[in-house]
Nucleic acid binder design. Sequence first.
DNA 1: GCCAACGTTGGC
DNA 2: GCCAACGTTGGC
Length: 154
Amino acid sequence: MAYWLFKTEPDAFSIDDLQQAPQQSTFWEGIRNYQARNFLRDDVQVGDQVFIYHSSCKIPAVVGIATVTKGAETDPHQFDLSSDYYDAKSSKDNPRWVGVTLCYQQHMPRPVTLKAIKADDAITELALKKAGRLSIMPVTDAEWTHICQLGGTE
DNA sequence: GCCAACGTTGGC
DNA sequence: GCCAACGTTGGC
């Protein structure tokens, strides 16, 4: 079992949207970055735990936890001409992009802000800290536990 | 809305 | 396969 952090823009899809989705689940679509894709395709497993992180918003923060309930599947939007996620260079024979299915688990009682993460000397590995545009990133066991404590979860 | 950082593209 | 130009992300 592994730990991850997935970014999302709350204006587009927030932790509340996930909680209110049918079965509190959603197909995590629209990942269009190769490094993130490789994690989704090769490493993310059913049962893995995921921090949901809100980006491009007033207070960027880890806001909740979800569970992976289904592994990598082809993201259908890459073939949808009317979608923002359409990719002319992807083919059905060899689809370029995948997504996984997440199920809502809980909100952080206290969101763990980017500011707090950056200021925290115990968090050194997290890719978020080194900035970058990676939208799916691994979280170490120790940092998962630490961020859970900061957020007030068990 | 600005702009730095960085991933992607494409010409050579 | 290099690298400049370009586009996007995302914090501020």
